[in-house]
C-alpha cells in the first residue's frame, strides 16, 4: 500500500479535501438540525421573560412593529389579561450611548407614566456607564456564609428607578438621576425613555 500522505496528484488532493469538507458539512448540518428548535425557543422566551419583568400579570401579548424615521426599529407590546388591557411596553433603542447602541424595554401604566425599565443590550464602559444601565443582583459573601436568602425580583438601579412614575413630558436632566462621571450614558438613557414615550403617544393618537 502506498503512503497516502506522500501523494500529490491534483485529483487525489481535491478528492481528499472534498471528502473532509463533506463530512464536516454533514456534522454541522446535523448539529444545526439538533439545536434549531432550542435556539428559537430560547430567543422567544427571552423576550417573554423581559416582558414579565416590566409588566404586571398578563396572559396574552400583542406586538406591533414600528419603524422610526431614523432607521431604528421599535416594538410596541400591548399586554392583556382576560381580554382586558393589562399594560403596555415599548422596546426601542438609541445610538447615543458611550459605546453606541443601547436597547431597552420601557413599560408604562394606563396614565402613560413610566412603570419600569429593563436594558436589554448595551455596550457601556464596565464600572462607569454600566452604573446607569445595568441591574445587577449582588450576592455578598457574608450573606451567603450566613445562609441568608438573596432578594427575589428585579434588582434595583438608582438611575433607572428614578424614571418611574413620570410621564414623557416630565423627563429632563433635572428630574431623573444622572450618574456623575457617566453623563453620556445618562443622557443616552434619558433620550431612550423619551423616545419610548413619544412612540407610545404617537401610536395612541391614531
Amino acid at each position: 500500500m502506498t503512503d497516502l500522505r506522500k501523494k500529490s496528484g491534483i485529483l487525489y488532493l481535491s478528492f481528499a479535501l472534498f471528502l473532509i469538507c463533506a463530512a464536516a458539512a454533514a456534522v454541522m448540518a446535523f448539529t444545526a438540525l439538533l439545536t434549531e428548535k432550542p435556539i428559537r425557543q430560547r430567543q422567544k422566551s427571552l423576550v417573554e421573560e423581559n416582558l414579565k419583568l416590566v409588566l404586571p400579570d398578563f396572559d396574552a401579548v400583542k406586538e406591533r412593529k414600528i419603524s422610526g424615521s431614523d432607521g431604528t426599529d421599535s416594538v410596541l407590546f400591548l399586554a392583556e389579561k382576560d381580554g382586558k388591557p393589562a399594560g403596555k411596553a415599548v422596546q426601542t433603542s438609541t445610538m447615543n450611548g458611550y459605546g453606541g447602541k443601547i436597547e431597552a424595554l420601557v413599560s408604562f401604566d394606563p396614565a402613560n407614566r413610566v412603570r419600569r425599565i429593563v436594558v436589554i443590550s448595551h455596550n457601556e464602559t464596565p464600572g462607569i456607564g454600566t452604573r446607569v444601565v445595568e441591574r445587577k443582583a449582588v450576592r455578598r459573601l457574608w450573606d451567603v456564609l450566613k445562609g441568608q436568602k438573596t432578594e427575589e425580583g428585579l434588582p434595583a438601579n438608582e438611575a433607572l428607578d428614578s424614571y418611574e412614575g413620570r410621564t414623557g413630558d416630565e423627563l429632563s436632566p433635572g428630574t431623573v438621576h444622572f450618574v456623575s462621571g457617566a453623563t453620556i450614558s445618562s443622557n443616552a438613557m434619558l433620550d431612550l425613555v423619551r423616545r419610548a414615550a413619544d412612540i407610545l403617544k404617537e401610536e395612541e393618537s391614531h
Partner: peptide, 8 residues
C-alpha cells in the same frame, strides 16, 4: 493523519 496528504 494517515490519509491526509502533507500538501493540504
Amino acid at each position: 493523519r494517515g490519509i491526509v496528504p502533507d500538501k493540504i
